[in-house]
Design a protein around this nucleic acid. Sequence first.
DNA 1: CGAGCTTGTTGACAGGCCGCCAACAAGCCG
DNA 2: CGGCTTGTTGGCGGCCTGTCAACAAGCTCG
Lengths: 199, 199
Amino acid sequence: MSIDVGQRRRFSPDARREQILSVAVRLFGERGYAEVSTTDVAREAGVARGLINHYFGTKKDLYLEVIHVMLTVPPVALASLPDGDLPVRIDAIVGWFLDVVSRHSQSWLAAITAGGMAGDAEVDRAISSAIDAAADAVLTAVGFTAVTPPMHAMARSYVGLATSTAREWLERDVLTRAQVHRLLSLTLLTMVTSVFTDD
Amino acid sequence: MSIDVGQRRRFSPDARREQILSVAVRLFGERGYAEVSTTDVAREAGVARGLINHYFGTKKDLYLEVIHVMLTVPPVALASLPDGDLPVRIDAIVGWFLDVVSRHSQSWLAAITAGGMAGDAEVDRAISSAIDAAADAVLTAVGFTAVTPPMHAMARSYVGLATSTAREWLERDVLTRAQVHRLLSLTLLTMVTSVFTDD
DNA sequence: CGAGCTTGTTGACAGGCCGCCAACAAGCCG
DNA sequence: CGGCTTGTTGGCGGCCTGTCAACAAGCTCG
């Protein structure tokens, strides 16, 4: 019952990196950080454990690349948002966010809360930059050009509301998409019209 | 250079538990879950490492009790909220929340995001019940009696907004308390008057 | 006041995971 | 075909965790 019948094969470094990384993304996505050992990744990749350290360094470094992949969302069609009225633009950005988060729910939503390793400096920085990207997307979609630091911080807060609401929708199944859409649209409208104005 | 000059002393089980638990709360509050070993807790408590397992079982069980302590907030003066108009009650509950979270910021805010161990089933359940408690506090303070599941879920979402906003305020120092208060009050008012109404 | 007993406490053992590194060999090149 | 570059392996040392038999602190009873 030999699993790996194959001899020892040489791959291109890029190919090996990609292969190991894809296995790591899958495993870290299914279970958490602590529940996945480098031995697991090596076994499922059909590779010696030491090779992971050779390519990625530390297990935490591997995890950093994994969450980078999981948090990197194709900003496709983000520029193709309608130029209509403010409520129209808000509906568009909210719908776009719900589409994205429902597609890679198991990836993005799990990584944004650092499934298993919040508190680490580098992991927190990676998550923070992902929040920044989402906040920037919201601000540009709403139509803001000159963004002050407080406005940016409030947009980051709104991303926190969006993620927690999406979690209620996708992982708890008690809210409908329409309710989530309505909540996020109205709160964003309130923040834009009443909160951002005078800072 | 002997640190512990004391002989082996016998304590009451409750006293030992409390002593070890206080040390664990401090260490897990300062650093994350993975960064603190049971050897650290045992050393700082002046106790053999095996005693921790004897009293708490697994390291994760100890961590569960730790976050239970950190997330248990004295609901003092929560019943003594003013009975005034809706904006008045909202201002009161928001101010109360900001007071609480600014006092145990290093505890509550760090534990609500499961500093180092999200994804675990039991840890997630503990955090979820803490969110439930906060959501119930918000709902009762606002004045709702009959709470439907969707409303409860929306209140949980609002708690997510509150925590992320408090994090922007306390850990990033770019928002003032007044701005945070205004944001949380206006969004809660919006949710109560426009979102909750028709579900 | 001393012997015995309850039980809080300890230290060591076994298993697992991680980072590191010298040795090995697959595939190219002259 | 022989040598060489370098992708790849397996084992070593160290740290961490859960378990458990042995030890002793302090109470109890004769």
